[in-house]
Each structure stands twice: as C-alpha cells, then as structure tokens.
Design a protein around this nucleic acid. Sequence first.
RNA 1: GCCCAGAUGGCGGAAUUGGUAGACGCGCUGGAUUCAAAAUCCAGUUCUGGAAACAGAGUGUGGGUUCGAUUCCCACUCUGGGUACCA
Length: 923
Amino acid sequence: MDYNFNKIEKKWSKKWDEQKTHLSKENINKKKYYVLDMFPYPSGSGLHVGHPLGYIASDIYARYKKLNGYNVLHPMGYDSFGLPAEQYAIETGQHPELTTKQNIKRYRNQLNKIGFSFDWSREIQTSDPKYYKWTQWIFKQLYQSYYCNIDDKALPISELIAEFERNGNIDVKSPCDTDTPIFTKKQWLSWTHAKQQSIVLKYRLAFLSETLVNWCEGLGTVLANDEVKDGFSERGNFPVKQKKMQQWSLRITAYAERLLNDLDEIDWSDAIKETQKNWIGKSKGVVIQFQTSCKNHLIDVFTTRPDTIFGTTFIVISPEHPLVAKIVTESTKKTVQDYCEKASLRSERDRQSDSRTISGVFSGNYVIHPFNKEKLPIWIADYVLSSYGTGAIMAVPCGDQRDWEFAQKFKLKIKNIFKNRDIAKSAYQNMDAIIANSDFLNDLRASDAIDKSTCKLVEMGIGLAKINYRLRDAIFSRQRYWGEPFPVYYKNGAPYIINNHEAVELPKIDKYLPTSHGEPPLARAKKSDWNIFEGEKMEYNTMPGWAGSSWYFLRFMDPKNEKEFVSKEKANYWGQVDLYIGGAEHAVGHLLYSRFWTKFLYDRGFINFKEPFKKLINQGMILGRSNFVYRITKTNTFVTDELKNKYKTNKLYVNIDFVKNDILDIDKFKTWRSEYKNAKFILNEDSKYKCGYEVEKMSKSKYNTQTPDDLVEKFGADTLRLYEMFLGPLEQYKPWDTNGINGVHNFLKKVWRLTHDKHNQFNIVDTNPTLEENKSIHKCIKKITQDLNRYSFNTVVSALMICINELMDLKCNKKAIISDFLILLSPYAPFITEELWEKLGNPNSISEAKWPKYNDKYLQESHFTYPVSFNGKLKFKLNVLKNLSKKEIENKIVSNDNTHKYLGGKKIKRIIIVPNKIINIVA
RNA sequence: GCCCAGAUGGCGGAAUUGGUAGACGCGCUGGAUUCAAAAUCCAGUUCUGGAAACAGAGUGUGGGUUCGAUUCCCACUCUGGGUACCA
C-alpha cells in the first residue's frame, strides 16, 4: 500500500501530543477566536458517527482560523452527569462514577483517532467535584439574588432585605411567587427570622415550589417523559401519574423579556431564534376575575381576547386547579374526582396533542358574568393546562375552535358575537370581524374592543392587563443520584445554604434506588457518608442534566482555577464563544438555560458579556436506523412485526447490535436486561422474530448508534473527516450510509500519487508553475476561502477534488502549487498533509503555515460563453469578448444564423442581456 | 395538536443575489491494463422517444408572480426534530 494512512496517523498523533501542537495560551497581542462544540454525554455505546460531524466541522474551522493568524481556543470536555449512567448503575450495581470514567476513556480514545486539534489540557468533566463545586457556587449566587424590575437586573438578596426593613415590600417591583403577601416595614420587623426567610425565599432566583411530576408508584420514583410510554413506565411497565412535589426552581421567567430581546444581538439562524421566541411565548392579555355564584370563590382567567367577553358561555378550569375541590357539589363530587384521577394519568403532551378526544365534567358550580350577570357553568377539562396562564379560561365557543368543539360535544350554549360571520360549522378565529351582541363593545373592531374592554375591567377592579409568557420557571430538582448535589441543608423544614468553599460531594450509597418511603436515592446515605453534613438533613435531590452544561464554556477559559469559577482577566480575553456548533435538538433547553445563566452572571458582575454564543450553527443530525420489538401490554411476551396488529402491544426500542437485517438475535436480547431473561416470543412463519424499524435520530436511548472506529481503521481518519463533510451541508439532516466513502479515499490516494513516483518515492520539483497550473490553484483558493467563510464545508471537498483532478491532468508536482494545495487541504486532512509538508522540507507543523491568498490576475478571462435561450429555454451558446457592450452583443445575436433557426419565422419581441450571465430572446 | 426544518437522477448532493438544473462523488454500463485479481486509467450515464441528429418532459403536489423560478408568494402532502425530567 502506497498511502499508508495507519502509519502516518499514528506517527502524527504521537508527535502532536509530544510537541503540544494544539495548546492555546492567552496572548493579548493576538486576536482571539473561540470555537466550541456542544460537549458530549459519554454514553456506554461510545461515540457514534453523528458526534464527530460537528466536531470535524468546528475543527476545520478552528484550524482555518489558526492558519489565518488567530489565537484559537478549541477545547473539549464531557457532560458526564446523566440518566443512562444511573440506569446502568441500578441494573448492575456499579457506581456511575466508574462506568462514566470508563466511557470517558473510550470517548477520548475514539476522539484521539480522528485528529482533532483540541487543547486537552483544558478538559473538564461536569461530574468532577472540582468542576461541580462551581456549579454549586452559581446555584448559591442564584439563591442569594433576586430580580429587580426597576434596575432590570439581578441584585444581591441583601438589598431586598434592606428594602423590606425600610418600607416592607410595597414599593418592590420584583418577580416573586404568586402567593406573596403585601406587607409593611412594621409587619416585617415583627416577624420571626424563620418567617422572614420564608418570605425572602419567594423572591430568590433559586426557590422552592410545588410542581407536577411524573410519579411512578411502582418504581417509587419520578420519571422523565422519555421513560413514560402511554401512561406506563418503560422500565417495569408500571402506571405513572401526575403528582405535586416540592422542588427547587430557577426564576428564568424574570429574564423572559431580555431573553427575547437580546436574540437580535446574536448571529443565529432565524429558525432557531423563532423557536426560542415561540418557546418564551410572549402574549399580551388580561387576567379577569370571575366570582362563583355561591361560596364567593374567585377564579382568575387569562385571556388575550377580552373583546370576546360577551361570547363567554362557560368557564373551564384544569383538573389540577386548586379550586376544583372547593367548588364541587355533593352530587358532582364523585364524577369530578374520577375525572381528575383519570386526567392525572395523562401527560401534558398527550393532553395537548390529542385534540380529537374531547373530555370534561361539569363541576356543579357557576360563575357570574361580570357584565350581563348571566350564570355560566364551570367545567373541568384536561384541554386546559395548569402550567399556562392561570390554569383557567373563559370559553368563547364562537371565537375559539377548541371551545367550540367542547360546547358542541357537551351541548353548551354558543353565542355569536361577530357581525355577519357564520359560526355554524366552526369558530371564527380571525381578528377582522366587527363585534356585535356585546353591549358597550358593539360595532367595534377587535383591536379597539380589546382596549375598551380591558379599560373597563381594570376600572371595575376585576381585571389586570398582563403580559403572559409561555415560558415557565425551570424545575431544578431531580430525584436522582447521578447529578450535582445541592449545597443545601434543612433545619425545621426550612432550607439553608451551606457556607463552605468546598464542594458538597456525592456520598456513596448502597443502591441507586429511591428509599422505601419514596425519597430520592441520596436519602440512603448515612450522615458519615457525606463530606459535608449540616442541619437535620441534607437536600436529597440533585441538579438536572443541564446545570453543568449551562456554564461550561466559561470554565474552559480557566479550567484549573481553584479560587474562582473563571478569572475576570481570562473571561475578558476569550469572551464570547465566536462559533458554537451543536445539534438542533438543543434549540431551546440548553441554549436558553445557558443564555439565562450568562445574563445572570453578567448582572452580578462576574463576566462582561450578556450572550454566551455569538455565532451558532446547528449541525443537522446524522440519522440512524432504529429497531423495535413489540411487547404485548402487561405481559413479558414479544410478538414479531408481522403479527403485532393482532395484539395490544407496547413498542420498545431494541439495541441494533442484537438485530441483523431486522431479524432479532433472541439469545442476545434475553441477556440485555434482567427482565427479558424469561421473555417469551411469538415468531413469524420462518420461526424468526422480525423487528420494526424507523429512520430517526441516532441516540443512546434509541439504541441505534454506529461508531466511527471501524471506518478509521479501514480508511483512516483523514478519509472519515472528508467523508463526513462530503455527505452534505452541515445543517442538513442526513441518514448515515457508508456507500461513497471510497470516493474521498480515492481523492487522498490521488494526492499521494501526485507527489510520489511509481516506486512510492517522494517526487516534487521546484520550478515555476505555468499559467494554467496557477489558474487551477488560485481558482481553488478563492472558492475554498469563500466557502469556509460561509460555513459551506461540503462544497470545499468538491473544490479540492476538482483541483486535484486538474493538477493530475497537468501532471503538476511543482513545489509552489503543492504547498498551497496542502495548506488548503490541511484543515480537512491534517495527517496526510502534515506528512507531506514534512517531506517538502518544512521544519514546523503545517498548522503553523499561512493560508494562501488568491491572485485575481490568474483568474481573468477574455471571453464569456453566453447561454442563449428562447422564452427561457436554452437553445445554443455564443462565445463573445467580455468587454462588448450590450448593443454590440445584441447585434451579434440578431445577425446570428442560430437565432433565425430557432426563431422559426417568429419576430423578436425583446432581447434580455444580463452581462456575463445570460441572453434571453422573447419571441 | 403546537413550534421549527427538509423534499432535486438509481444514491449523497451542487447551483452563493431570480439567470446554462444535475458540479463533485458513489453506483452502474462498456473499454484499456493484467495469467487472473486488486489497484489504476479512458468513455458513457436525469427521464421518455430515437441508430443518431434531435424533440419533449423534468427540482414532493396544485396554483400564482416574472422575459426567466430548485430559488419569491399562496394552498397542500410526506419525512425528521423539539414539545419543558434523554442529552
């Protein structure tokens, strides 16, 4: 073999390592450039071919920037807390730290083979106490802060307490819990310390609140939505219901407006900005208070259409609404309870997506319409969500389709308040109708009626103009083991922050399961198992997966600092991430939380920028092919794909390693999980178990991952890098397929052949290039430079291929041309280019070379060949001098024989000449 | 359901600002080289009709704007992602 990639890649991996080629240091005299990848979760299945896609692109860009003279920061680390490691620990009893370490080792091995220019001296792991000490520190800062709407920023909580001592909370304008009372200075001072603290907690950016979770009694724990399938736990098949639980939350809603507005400052795709905008979901409306007809309860309703208030014919509240229990009557109590119980078994997503099943019950009670004093029935229905608005709506069947359908189903009144609009077949949801049947709103357009009704409601003291956000405060507690412990302990049921500079470390526990009382796994630890233990008990919840990833880009700037989470000096030098590459699946979660934390840290003066990621590219996912098995519901019997419709089944993922051509290896499958050991199978006619399949996201939870290792072994890392880029545009989704990898491998072989003779001896001449040779390379320099500047990584590969084909035709092995070509290729194929660069006699690494500049003089052409079309259809081509005027070209066209041939006797109506583009004849 | 994205030959894709549709690569067909194979090289390859010249059709579907539409507008279909505890 002439091009011995295995040998070359081993040699240079070692050299780069020894010579510390990729280390980056702060250097005030050089312009910085920060290239970052979304760091991986080190799963047990190893790195799959989807991971390197983004890493290769960012590595190419980092190398390109370095060749252009920038001081580049390009680090890598691991988001190493997470559910799969914990799940594995539950199944095998192995400490997640152990398996995580093994996985990281494997990832590192795999990453090292691909030739990335990561500065590994900066590696971080979120599960390392040295790292999560600072995640805990940020939590403490959040806890010690509140948001001031007057200054529009987060401030130390001490300032709020000082204000309470001066004036109570009467002048305070800060987001807080909805049940916060108004109090005076005098009241404040009369309260006990404990009472005061419970009030302060309602303002903190990290606070305790009651929220709904997926509770699985059978497993004694809370489940992720991912772990729930059709109301049952994926593991063990136990029923799952919604339950209220006290949890830490972060007041991200305080930042809603800034998270929305600052989107204008950053260079992200419109699609992702739109997604974030929709996620934040700002809407202007009114909270209207309805009074119940008996017992005098008040129901707050949020609406964006107060203009339709006279169309309200009933009220709907969510099954979780706190008033449900209070407004039911003796006769409705049972049905309401049953209904709420049933609703608690459905997830929020189910409730929203299943718009066909309309369900609800009458509460037995009524509200009084504030204007016409009509009695409106209060219904309870699961299409109203407790998490949005006030968890209650005024139903206007004539103006809202869901209300309309609900009214139809339960034969409730539908009142038309739109002039000349038919609502017999569906609601009229447009805003362009004139209001009728509405007392003082009659004959107004919707927008005017909104203003007028709002004013009136406010005047009457039963309405409050309100900006509502769909964004909810972020639940920050997880009932898990493998996450950051909170630096919190409890005394008399109240939370206290641990004031210790050390991290609260994860204690060792015997089993990674909840306790028999349904407490989180950490409750299993004895007092002596904790490195820090204060008060009556520690916080037993841990932080969610996104805690560590919300600020890791800062730690890379100063990863070893033991005094601060990042030094100001280093944060000021490296600043924002200039290019951030990662999957679009993080469009809201991770990206929104990082933006939130960045703004918070900015407010509190720890960093000097308010957005973390200046430029963002979402790499399209490389899709995998998943396989499924079908378990007959509530049994341990699996039925083959062909017969699955004869049974009621649950569709479960099966690891593709157990499946070949969709046929399941039953023996392997049985050893997968203990619960499958005694599984039974219903087979097809060939006595085989056939799995179902789908092309979808490659992910550990779908067990459909494929690793890059085999390809590196067989073709080399340079080929893998080129191939992953050659697959298509970075942003686009594409199914993984190794057909075609030969093409890019051949390309590298051509590079080798061009620079070696038939005896595999390096063969380069140092003579002046011809015009044609220069033209070829300068065309390539121009194209590649332009393409990289617009992140078009795939077309660069084509351009390199075209260039090498031309140089092959010209048999060009001249030093000047080959040198430039190698530099152009080096970001994509660092190994082979480094090897050839050395053979050319260069003492330093090619990564220290200078990116070539193209010279336009080689690209000038004297002639242009015009495509000549008739009515937009190409008929012939015309070669003319470039500097001809339009008139001269037109003359040439009119007198051309071909023109008359294709006119076929018709007259020319018009001739359109776009210089150096096209000629179109309209006939 | 809601939000976002995508759809171009047998396949991955190119066409950057409305201007030659199918660059580049895979695959396939034929040929050269070889004892044979691998490797390499040459020619062809959107579809339909045709020996060819050529003619017609053609960028998910239906409509529209334009001298000209893969590109802009409207309606729709299908596929993928997200949907708040997978990361």
